[in-house]
């Protein structure tokens, strides 16, 4: 798994590549936590090069979404979700809880 984080004026872009499982998910959570601990709650997650995400990764998403949406201060949005991972989000009942965008520019432009 590889994570890159870009901070923009109004939001943060996190790109995660490779495999998010019980071994690597803590690093993803830590990246999100660092952003929200700085008082920044508008985050876009670019999943275009993500190969695999287990329930440990889904937990990181839902926990971050809870923190971001609290007091209406922001939200975590998902970008370029691969088909297999979208099926997992769907089975987990996560689709209504996240906005999903096709590309990074649109996601960032909507904050």
């Amino acid at each position: 798994m590889e994570i890159t984080h870009t901070q923009y004026k109004h939001c943060d872009l996190v790109k995660v590549k490779g495999r998010v499982d019980s071994y690597t998910a803590p690093q993803l959570s830590e990246t999100f936590n660092k952003i929200t601990e700085e008082g920044r709650f508008k985050i876009a997650l670019d999943m275009s090069e993500l190969d695999f995400m287990s329930s440990a990764g889904l937990r990181a998403l839902i926990n971050t979404q809870k923190v971001c949406k609290r007091y209406n201060r922001g939200e975590l949005v998902l970008v370029a979700v691969p088909e297999n991972i979208r099926a997992a989000l769907d089975l987990a009942g996560f689709i209504p809880l996240f906005k999903i965008y096709d590309d990074v520019l649109t996601a960032i432009g909507n904050f």
Binding site: S54, S55, L58, R59, I62, K66, A88, L91, A92, L97
Partner: peptide, 10 residues
Amino acid sequence: RPTHGLGLHF
């Protein structure tokens, strides 16, 4: 939302 039990669901 519960954060556990999803794995078995899959």
